[in-house]
Write a protein that binds this DNA or RNA. Structure first.
Length: 309
DNA sequence: TGCAGTGTTGCTTC
DNA sequence: CGAAGCAACACTGC
């Protein structure tokens, strides 16, 4: 589930594996002659992909970074590969033997025993390095985004310009957090937390978990939440995201790290996908419920998570 | 077996 | 302008 902790885990992995390598080849089966408008400046456009290939071939990987849920891979020619994993994407690094057939990048028979796990299936984009190893982008729903931007355009680029501050930066103070929430005074707090222009990197799982930890109902309105509770939410946000990173991300669904291994955060959920289970909060007798809020499944305990509205 | 549910986000519509 | 809903896609699990 690529939210901030999963993307951080992947980026850490990239910095341990592909840094310093030179790009030798690139392949995708996502490129179309007539992509819909939204994907014109991504590798889903054949025209874009042709240029993309020219731009990245023979370039060296300098470093990888995370911004919100985006992976930024800097190249030696001052261009940056931007990858957004969206719902089901993940990147795996390794030695793949493969055959090309019908423009499908098909791992060789010997590799297939591992293909039962989603980590190694649904390969739609591959970078080959001069050491013979590959970075493969697996993405069953094909929502993921891969594009290229110039380093100098990074901040102004459409992909990043509306992104809010990074919640784990020390410079992101409580006062700033509170101010930003108050700009959406009467929206559901869960929806506000997941709004990337308010704060970067929080998605469905971690928003559920941080609201539970702070004892705030997901349909609370920011303007009605007492200051002390907001401070608790600010701390809970940092705690939950750091815990996600410590457990190397959440693999309840098909997220895998750079080596194809699962994270562990799914084993430490208190509410996400815990419908009908007893609430873990000390002295709480509540039961976790699931309710669709602004189109997303929300999980919470309506006994100990107070609804301020 | 069929259909509801799935981590994200950007576009359209109102 | 903001908010809500849906579309992009394909698979899993009840």
């Amino acid at each position: 589930m690529p939210e901030l902790p999963e993307v951080t885990t992947t980026v850490n992995g990239l910095n341990k594996t592909i840094k310093g390598l030179t790009i030798f080849g690139v392949w995708t089966d996502l490129a179309k002659d007539n992509p819909i408008k939204q994907f014109e400046n991504t590798i889903k456009s054949k025209k874009f992909f042709t240029q993309f290939k020219k731009d990245i071939l023979n370039q060296k990987i300098i470093k990888s970074e995370r911004r919100a849920k985006n992976i930024l891979i800097s190249l030696s020619n001052n261009k940056i590969i931007l990858i957004h994993l969206k719902m089901t994407g993940h990147l795996i690094y390794g030695k793949y033997r493969y055959i090309r057939k019908d423009n499908k990048w098909t791992p060789h028979e010997k590799e297939r025993e591992s293909l039962k796990d989603p980590y190694n299936r649904f390969i739609h984009f591959v970078i080959e390095f001069s050491n013979g190893k590959h970075l493969v982008f697996c993405d069953s729903r094909k929502f993921g985004k891969v594009t290229l931007i110039n380093e100098r355009d990074l901040k102004s680029s459409l992909h990043l310009k509306n992104i809010g501050p990074e919640p784990l930066e020390e410079s992101f103070l409580f006062e700033n957090f509170k101010e930003r929430l108050y700009k959406k005074p009467n929206k559901n707090i869960k929806t506000v937390l997941m709004d990337q222009s308010v704060v970067a990197g929080v998605g469905n799982i971690y928003s559920d978990e941080m609201l539970w930890l702070a004892g705030i109902h997901p349909e609370s309105h920011p303007i009605k939440i007492p200051g002390a509770k907001l401070l608790l939410l600010y701390k809970s946000m940092k705690d939950v995201l750091n815990k996600g990173i410590d457990f190397k991300g959440d693999s309840m669904s098909d997220y895998r790290n750079i080596n194809g291994e699962r994270g562990e955060f799914q084993n430490h959920h208190n509410v996400y996908q815990k419908k009908d289970e007893r609430c873990n909060k000390k002295n709480c007798r509540g039961v976790i419920i699931r309710k669709v809020i602004n189109g997303r499944g929300a999980h919470f305990c309506d006994t100990c998570q107070k609804n301020y509205k």
